[in-house]
Amino acid sequence: MSQWERFSDTFFNRAVIIQYLPDIYHGIWITLELSILIVIFGILLGTCLAVLRVYKILPLSFCIIVFADVFRALPPLVLILIAFFGLPSAGIYLSSFFVLFIILTLVLAAFSEEIVWAGLTSVDTGQWKAARSTGLSLNQTLIWIILPQAFRLAIPPLTNRAIAITKMTALGTVIGVPDILNQATTAQSFSGNASPLMIAAIIYVIIFLPLVIASRWLEEKFSWRKA
């Protein structure tokens, strides 16, 4: 067997690929489903938390800051393991899918909160004054004037963070979520061949490369000319 044949047999074994592709295919949907749910709920929750800080209710703002700092500081894997293996001892049983969803959503929310808050505070205070001077209420000013501008500033870091978090769905493999990577590692251990992992890598690229390109496009679209 030549060097090249050994290489292709290890990483691109046709028979192994054909056998396990349906399992990996099933994993794609789990990964996509999780990613979409996490991005939607994480950014939504993070934005809500950032907006709540605008009202300057001190105890509430303090809690939000503590939440954001802790969830940004801890490695998501630690949180996932604690939630999945720790909570049952306290009588709380959550499915592995749900644990992965809730933890990554909270982590993304923590990052989104900081990003959106940074956007909110970097909108010039003159915008608030001008809007309020025309009789717009605080909420109207927030919705129509401040948030649109804050989001323009937040979109590039937000998309980057969303991509980073959705890639972490692969962490689900340690608690048995049947995502792409989990299917691939299972297939790898049954077949003793690395081809399923290569397929998983290729699928990740296929899923995430367009997102990376889309984020670049969004970044350009939303960076509007300043006076």
Partner: peptide, 10 residues
């Protein structure tokens, strides 16, 4: 009316 105009840029 403000010194810095404060128009809504978006």
């Amino acid at each position: 009316v403000f010194q810095a105009f404060n128009l809504y840029p978006h």
